[in-house]
Design a protein around this nucleic acid. Structure first.
Lengths: 107, 107
DNA sequence: ACATTAATTCAATGATCGTTGTACTATCGA
DNA sequence: TCGATAGTACAACGATCATTGAATTAATGT
């Protein structure tokens, strides 16, 4: 994780609809969710949601798997873990801090 | 931590200079840093830095303590911890996930 | 009191981001 | 093949954000 990646991830999450999408995917776990389900659940237009999912995917926070004409989006826990690590790096100049990890989530 | 607070914190971090400021404060630990030190170290104009620090403070990610004409900025580890908790809430529908915590950092 | 330093505030400009509507590609079922 | 559905791509407008310069407040040292 470098600065560019961290900024990309943070900017991707710093938006109401994208944050809701990501949290929904985190809750969904390895099963993932389809764009249509997300669009219905969050009340977002399909093209708008597509734009936001693209932003999240480009930031490495979600993965895409194609199944027929459906796409399955999943939260990318490893990348989120890297982000947390980046934010807590060298905490307190190595004093009494241990950096915690985002769980692998039923992998 | 609610959605508004999470968005505020994420938006505050999703900026190159603010991210560097926050990381510098995390590294500095409880000692904190002065705006002038940050401005010199990061090569940012004072008024610009002031604007960014205000954004971070408003998001609850840093605290301010006044000492004479100096201000001491410190990373607010508790708030960062809450943010991580918010992002990982209900992970995998309560499956095998445990939410990790940002360390209290030599408190 | 005066000059100096620390830091903030404000207004204005330029740049970036988000939404919407439309068009497009691809897959499925009959 | 035809129609319907899933999802994406693109252009344009409106809104939001970041930087800059100048002015301001407050504390320090002489």
């Amino acid at each position: 994780m470098n600065e560019t990646q961290a900024l990309s991830a943070l900017a991707a999450l710093a938006h109401p609809q994208r944050l809701r999408v990501f949290r929904a995917l985190v809750v969904a776990g390895p099963a993932g969710l389809l764009p249509s389900v997300l669009a219905d659940r969050l009340g977002v237009a399909r093209n708008t949601l597509s734009f936001h999912l693209k932003t999240l995917a480009h930031a490495g926070l979600v993965t895409i798997e194609q199944q027929g004409r459906n796409l399955i989006y999943r939260a990318e826990y490893g990348h989120m873990n890297d982000l947390i690590g980046y934010l807590t790096e060298h905490c307190c100049e190595g004093g009494s801090c241990e950096v915690s990890a985002f769980p692998p989530c039923a992998s």
